[in-house]
Structure formats: structure tokens, C-alpha cells
């Protein structure tokens, strides 16, 4: 059973939808893909504004909004994965040939990747916090 009992009908509905949602190789790569997109845009934004404008915005609102969005997506993916990896069944290592164990394995891996991607996005954001010019 899930450790947290969902409160209210709406939350319960959400919870059961998450539990029954399809877990695939594509959902596995959602968190690192978010990292990749965030990283790519951070790089392009820095490269283009330095080359074309010669400087950054003094307070890059768009960058921080994008970073917050990326982190939110990663956290959402982690929460979904957490609910899914806690669906009833044996404790890890999730190595039985059942749908449940396959799902719980993929959810665990997604959850771990979300952790790494979160750290990755924070790492990418740090330079912008400290360096705000193009030298």
C-alpha cells in the first residue's frame, strides 16, 4: 500500500490515475530530457545574447522562469514515479516477471533519474547566478 493515504476525492482520483498510468521507456527519459532542453536553451541564450547583444539582461527573468519550470516538471515526474514505485508488491529488487514489478522497476529508475536531473538543472543554473556578463 501507498504510505501516504490520499486525502479527498479529487486527490484520490489523481492518485489512482497515476497508479494506472502507463510506464514506458519514454516516461523513463522525461526527467533527463527536461534537463537537456533546459541546458540547450541556457547555452543558446548565453551564446546568442553574448554574440548578438554583447551582454545579458541585468535580471534574466525568462531564464529563472524557465529554470523554475524545468525543476517543476522534474519534481512532478519524480512525484508520479514515487507513487508508482510504491504500488503494492514485494520490496526491491523488483525482479519478478510481472507487470507490477516491471512498472515498479521503471518507476524507480525514473525517480532516480529525476534526482540526477534536478541536480543537473541546479548545476546549470548556478553559473548564471554568479556570472552575469560575457567576458
Amino acid at each position: 500500500m501507498s504510505k501516504r493515504r490520499p486525502r479527498g476525492r479529487m486527490l484520490h482520483g489523481l492518485h489512482s490515475r497515476i497508479v494506472t498510468a502507463r510506464v514506458t521507456l519514454w516516461t523513463l527519459i522525461v526527467p533527463p530530457t527536461v534537463w537537456a532542453v533546459h541546458f540547450l536553451f541556457a547555452y543558446l541564450w548565453a551564446a546568442v545574447s553574448c554574440e548578438k547583444a554583447g551582454r545579458f539582461a541585468s535580471f534574466p527573468v525568462l531564464f529563472w522562469a524557465g529554470t523554475a519550470l524545468a525543476l517543476a516538471l522534474i519534481v512532478a515526474s519524480a512525484l508520479v514515479a514515487m507513487v508508482q514505485k510504491e504500488t503494492p508488491g514485494d520490496p526491491p529488487p523488483h525482479d519478478a516477471g510481472t507487470d507490477t514489478d516491471r512498472n515498479r522497476f521503471l518507476a524507480t529508475a525514473t525517480w532516480l533519474l529525476a534526482g540526477l536531473s534536478f541536480a543537473g538543472v541546479v548545476f546549470t543554473a548556478l553559473p548564471v547566478l554568479f556570472l552575469l556578463d560575457c567576458r
Binding site: A47, T124, P127
Partner: peptide
């Protein structure tokens, strides 16, 4: 630009 270097350094 140093900012580009820093992004890749972080990754």
C-alpha cells in the same frame, strides 16, 4: 564567453 564555459563546466 565565460558564461558558456561555466555552463559546460557545471555539466
Amino acid at each position: 564567453p565565460k558564461i558558456s564555459l561555466a555552463l559546460f563546466s557545471a555539466a
